[in-house]
């Protein structure tokens, strides 16, 4: 079943006289449980694509349907709630709210969703333990390593029970050891909860783990390959 259906997606930036076609007509679907890498050279449009897909950046034209909802037809308030309930985000860095502890960061999104206290507490513990940082529940982000912070961010994304998780270069700031740890954990989560993961990445190790690789160049899909792993 398709979780995401994207048709003729275009994003044009009009920056001082030059028109940049950051995304130039992408049509693609994503199924439940995918573990997909979007790759391509710098400036090829990966971030722009993911942002439109994640309801963060409005496309110039085209459609993004998530679970049957036409995302860019939603009002801005509804769109924020839609993101909260359907999409998990992991950014490159500084994902977490600095004044909240790891546990509070994970709980925060469930708080926004209005889930009961008991569920929040249990799920926070479960997610952090699943990501192997159950012992850091009371630490503030500044006290965590880059890899640990990214793991908290993944735990937070998973905690909200989203349709899929978008991760824009989640390993870009990590050393190789932390990168493989994070990848290992995400792959485990993908299998355990059947959550869809979509990455934008330059990282060969991420590509090696991905079961589908979509290559973008100049805002267009160059190739779309699936692997059995």
């Amino acid at each position: 079943m398709n979780v995401i259906e994207i048709k003729d997606l275009v994003k044009i930036y009009n920056s001082s006289e030059v028109q940049v076609k950051a995304v130039n007509g992408i049509t693609v679907n994503f199924e439940e449980g995918e573990f997909t890498a979007v790759v391509g050279p710098s400036g090829s449009g990966k971030t722009t694509f993911l942002n439109m897909l994640g309801g963060l950046d409005r496309p110039t034209s085209g459609s993004v349907r998530i679970g049957g909802t036409e995302v860019w037809d939603l009002s801005s308030r509804k769109l924020i709630d839609f993101r909260m309930n359907n999409i998990g985000f992991v950014f490159q860095s500084y994902n977490l709210i600095p004044v909240l502890t790891a546990g509070e960061n994970v709980e925060f999104i469930m708080h926004l969703q209005g889930r009961p206290k008991k569920e929040r507490t249990e799920r926070t513990k479960e997610m952090l333990e699943a990501m192997g940082i159950g012992d850091r529940i009371k630490s503030r982000p500044a006290k965590l390593s880059g890899g640990q912070q990214q793991r908290v961010a993944v735990a937070r994304a998973l905690a909200s029970k989203p349709e899929f998780i978008l991760a824009d270069e989640p390993t870009a700031n990590l050393d190789s050891h932390s990168t493989s740890e994070l990848l290992e954990l995400m792959s485990k989560m993908n299998k355990k909860y059947n959550t869809t993961f979509i990455f934008a990445t330059h990282d060969q190790r991420v590509m090696d783990k991905a079961r589908r690789i979509i290559t973008i160049e100049d805002g267009k899909i160059l190739s779309d390959e699936k692997f059995k792993r």
């Binding site: 924020i80 909260m84 985000f89």
Partner: peptide, 16 residues
């Protein structure tokens, strides 16, 4: 700015 952006991105309403 970035932190506020992340909060809105993950689902916090602007008025909150």
């Amino acid at each position: 700015k970035r932190e506020l952006g992340v909060m809105i991105a993950i689902g916090m309403q602007r008025h909150k």
